[in-house]
């Protein structure tokens, strides 16, 4: 499978480019929307939530921006990725190419966006006076784990969506539910030990907390939890590949 993907790397490349460029085609700000959008969301949260939570978190805007951005990567990848096979139905019926290129290019274009938006996080760190620490070297590791987790999930959801079109809506619901179960707007240590342990079963909780550790608290991530999430991600990816390989054979007939 990897060999074939390597052979088709040009397709992957041009697909990623198309995803990044084509998404905001016809709008004035174009690609900039990928960054303006999460920034505006951050702004809204930063204004509203301090009132609701009476949060005493210093630098609250910086505190949430480093969670909103990876969260945006997750939700937008999931939403577009789940659809990726369906919207490309026309071409799937006519030409052979490794179908997994489609979900892979969605997650990868999201990755590129996220890497660029890391600059926003850096700017916030700089201007809030928090600054940087050596722990930033763990950033690639966290990103990689999130990438594999998302890819695994999307391989499953995109192939199921072809057969049961409800998948999209069910996933939308779970994503909005997950938003509240993931420490994007708050931090896990607001909760009693036991509860926060349960919440950490959600792999995204650990991933988001890890970003916050290295940027905001300037400590290394919790390697025990991150290790658990890394194994889980690889497991999800493995299952994703299996499911996708099985279901892709029927794509052209089902679409």
């Amino acid at each position: 499978m990897l060999k074939e993907l390597y052979q088709y790397r040009q397709l992957l490349k041009s697909n990623v480019r198309k995803e990044i460029r084509g998404k905001y085609k016809g709008s004035f700000l174009g690609v900039l929307w990928s960054f303006v959008n999460p920034l505006l969301m951050t702004l809204v949260y930063a204004i509203v939530f301090p009132f609701l939570l009476r949060s005493s978190q210093p630098h609250y805007t910086t505190f949430i921006v480093m969670a909103v951005l990876p969260w945006t990567w997750f939700t937008s990848s999931l939403a577009q990725g789940t659809n990726s096979i369906l919207v490309n139905g026309g071409i799937i019926k006519k030409v052979y190419f490794p179908r997994s290129i489609l979900p892979i290019s969605i997650v990868t274009s999201g990755l590129v966006n996220f890497l660029i938006s890391c600059i926003i996080i850096f700017i916030f760190l700089l201007f809030s006076g928090i600054g940087f620490s050596i722990n930033i070297i763990f950033l690639p590791l966290i990103i990689l784990i999130q990438y594999f987790l998302q890819l695994g999930i999307i391989l499953i959801t995109s192939s199921i969506d072809v057969y049961v079109r409800d998948a999209e809506y069910i996933i939308n619901f779970f994503v909005s539910l997950l938003f509240y179960a993931t420490p994007v707007l708050y931090s896990l240590d607001m909760f009693p030990q036991k509860l926060s342990m349960i919440m950490q079963l959600n792999p995204l909780a650990t991933i988001i907390s890890s970003y916050r550790n290295i940027f905001y608290y300037q400590t290394p991530p919790d390697f025990l939890m991150l290790g658990y999430v890394a194994i889980l991600s690889l497991l999800v990816l493995f299952i994703g590949i299996k499911v996708f390989n099985k279901l892709e054979k029927g794509f052209a007939e089902e679409l």
């Binding site: 790397r9 040009q10 397709l11 490349k13 041009s14 198309k18 026309g90 071409i91 030409v95 190419f97």
Partner: peptide, 24 residues
């Protein structure tokens, strides 16, 4: 199959050929 209407002929050559598995 896989032509993009808004892309030029040249761009479509690249896109279409990449679907056939060619590198840049």
């Amino acid at each position: 199959a896989g032509f993009h209407q808004d892309f030029t002929g040249r761009e479509n050559i690249y896109f279409n050929a990449s679907i056939f598995g060619l590198t840049a």
